[in-house]
């Protein structure tokens, strides 16, 4: 079975950042780093959030010197407790899907985030480590980005989906080839 991953359809993405904020909130609730694990990226050809593809032969896991990143349970998992913030994974990732976070941007006054209960309190800058998508594997509702997207631009792709789409594309390719030869003959 392939690893699972979340991907966005740029035809539907509004660039509204709802996915990113939902990501932050869901991870903060778990006591994980309160940073987004997907990044809305504007380009002249289209806009969508970019996040981890949970590669089968994940380069980030290969370069991690402390085995904080492992491929298991159909995903690429980063253990925030083990990570030493060496940044190798971020350099190796072909999608730019891993960020190194923990300190606030220079123009912003550092202050503790306000949370409703003391249990959830966290301070920016406490620990600088790699941040990447974990498919919200702690949450029975699944990835929050998928759930909150107002245009349903995001979806969770599971192993079978890729094969199904490939079958559809192959079928399309046959139709195309048939048409091409017909035209060439005619």
């Amino acid at each position: 079975m392939f690893n699972r991953f979340v991907i966005a359809n740029p035809d539907r993405c509004l660039g509204c950042y709802t996915c990113m904020a939902a990501c932050v909130v869901n991870h903060a609730k778990q006591g994980l780093q309160a940073y987004p694990r997907l990044h809305v990226t504007y380009t002249p050809v289209g806009t969508m959030p970019v996040q981890c593809h949970h590669c089968e032969d994940a380069p980030c896991a290969l370069v991690c010197p402390v085995k904080a990143i492992e491929v298991k349970e159909q995903m690429v998992k980063l253990n925030e407790g083990l990570c030493i913030g060496c940044k190798m994974c971020a350099l190796a990732c072909p999608f730019g899907a891993i960020t190194i976070q923990g300190t606030p941007p220079p123009s912003v006054q550092a202050e503790p985030a306000r949370t409703l209960t003391a249990l959830l309190a966290w301070f920016a800058g406490q620990k600088t480590i790699g941040i990447k998508c974990d498919l919200c594997d702690f949450d029975e509702q699944g990835p929050q980005c998928v759930r909150v997207c107002p245009t349903k631009a995001l979806q969770l792709v599971e192993g079978g989906d890729v094969e199904r789409w490939s079958r559809l594309k192959r079928a399309g390719a046959v139709t195309g080839a048939v048409a091409m030869f017909k035209e060439a003959e005619g």
Partner: peptide, 20 residues
Amino acid sequence: GYHYHTGTMTRKSWPITQVT
């Protein structure tokens, strides 16, 4: 998209300021 006008409300909602 993520902030509203003079920020009186959205800048006091931490998930929004955290992202932007």
